[in-house]
Computed example of a mutant assay.
Amino acid sequence: MSWKALRAGDPPEVGPYRLMGRLGSGGMGIVYLGVDDAGTRAAVKVMREEHTADAAFRHRFHREAAAVAAIDSPRVARLLAADVDGDQPWIATEYVAGPTLFSSVATGGPLSGAALWEVARGLAEALSAIHDADVVHRDLKPGNVMLAEDGPKVIDFGIVAGLPGMMTASGVVMGSIGYLAPELLTTTRRPRPAADIFSWGLTVCYAASGRPPFGGGPLDALLYRTVHGEADLSGLPGPLRGVVAASLRKKPERRPDAHRILTQIAATAGAVAA
């Protein structure tokens, strides 16, 4: 993951970490590359100053730190340290060297063969651990998957399920349009693990084709296709296509869980190898 220079006003250090540069930013916080005295690198998310007095934002930081701490998987960037109650809340997670799945495919083209199977399997392993910890990620997408040397890793639990419903008080959908499950667009029920399974299928579709699974165009059209249309599976090899198609069933109760997907991938990949 590349980083950019610090800007005027950025803190020089946070907790035990000396900040080296910016990794990215979002509505809730800015993510920095930090290094502690032992030389350990971390992705340090710092809450934006304008949100520090907002109890809802602080609750989301608490929820994110608790969620990452509960998950034990090499396929998820682990929690290193956090201070979610201080004047400027922050969360430090494992720094993952490597590109995101989105940038890798955008610059190098779609994945195929063993690389595609590794992403499909690795993300299913991540979801298995996430769901076993009673967590729903809610924002699995190519930009939240890092391609590390030892395999894919899921990052960014900033909107992990915890508060009832999936919309803010203003009715804004929480998540990334184009990679959300249809039930998150049609109900206000608390997201379930099956929503992540749908996002897994869409993310694997993107990895195999380099195209948004539901296409582009106006937002309303994209939302309509998500709820009523079918994702583009044309880039997937035949043996993997059936596994992904099952994950994209419109009714969440008909989708396999992450453990079932892992079993299906193992059986399918074994048959291909044979």
Rank of each mutant, 00 (worst) to 15 (best):
F214E: 01
G178F: 02
I197W: 01
P218F: 08
V136F: 00
R254T: 13
A38Y: 14
M146Y: 02
Y32F: 10
T203L: 08
R189G: 13
P12C: 12
E230D: 13
G109F: 04
Q264F: 03
Y224F: 11
L33W: 02
V35C: 13
L223E: 03
V46W: 08
A126I: 04
R189A: 14
L163D: 15
Q264E: 14
G158R: 05
G235M: 09
I30G: 07
M1Y: 11
E94N: 04
G162Q: 06
A67G: 08
A53G: 15
A246P: 05
D83P: 10
S176Y: 01
V136T: 03
S247F: 06
V272N: 02
T100R: 10
A69Y: 03
R63T: 14
G229C: 04
E94R: 07
M174I: 11
M28F: 13
E183P: 02
A70T: 07
V204M: 07
L163A: 14
A66M: 13
R41L: 14
R190T: 15
G162D: 12
I197A: 01
D220I: 15
A38G: 12
W3L: 12
P12Q: 14
G216S: 11
G235W: 06
D232H: 08
M20V: 15
E125H: 04
L140F: 01
G162W: 03
P191T: 02
A69E: 11
G39I: 07
G34Y: 03
A55Y: 12
N144R: 04
G162C: 02
A124I: 07
V68C: 02
R18P: 09
R249N: 11
G229A: 02
R241Q: 10
A56P: 12
G122F: 01
E149T: 15
V145N: 06
E230W: 03
A124K: 09
L33G: 06
